[in-house]
């Protein structure tokens, strides 16, 4: 997290969740990964960080307070110049229509809480590998 842009060229992961414990858990999950970790606690802050840091992967909570929730943020990202970035929606909601809403907003994956950190790492790694392959 302390690395400066352009020096190591490590990929960046943005974790967006209003709950401190959730951010803590995800941070710990990816603490020894290849990603530089960034945090935001709501949709608006997340959008600001995206513009500034241009992360490669975003783990996005769906239900967040404020004017921009996870679905909104996902739609904004996927219709912007940052649409190449992978968005994984994380949510407590498990209903079918929420899943569909997420896919409609352009999410690359959808993970429901409670989630397995091991499985999440798996999903992120697979997605990252595919992205690497596609760009080379």
């Amino acid at each position: 997290m302390t690395d400066t842009v352009g020096v190591t060229k490590r990929p960046k992961m943005l974790i967006v969740d209003d709950n401190f414990d959730m951010r803590d858990l995800i941070t710990m999950t990816f603490s020894s990964s290849i990603f530089d970790l960034l945090e935001a606690e709501n949709g608006q802050d997340a959008l600001k960080i995206i513009v500034k840091e241009q992360p490669d992967i975003i783990l996005l909570d769906v239900m967040m307070p404020g004017e921009v929730d996870g679905i909104d943020a996902c739609r904004i990202i996927k219709t912007s110049v940052y649409k190449e970035c992978c968005v994984i929606l994380l949510t407590a909601k498990g209903q079918k229509d929420d899943f569909q809403k997420g896919l409609d907003a352009g999410a690359d994956a959808y993970v429901t809480k409670p989630f397995s950190p091991v499985a999440l790492i798996e999903i992120v790694n697979t997605m990252w590998a595919q992205k690497q392959q596609a760009s080379t």
Binding site: D21, L25, I26, M28, A92, P114, F115, S116
Partner: peptide
């Protein structure tokens, strides 16, 4: 209930 459960589950 899922949020604290997620913490318990994940940690």
């Amino acid at each position: 209930l899922r949020t604290p459960l997620s913490s318990v589950f994940g940690f």
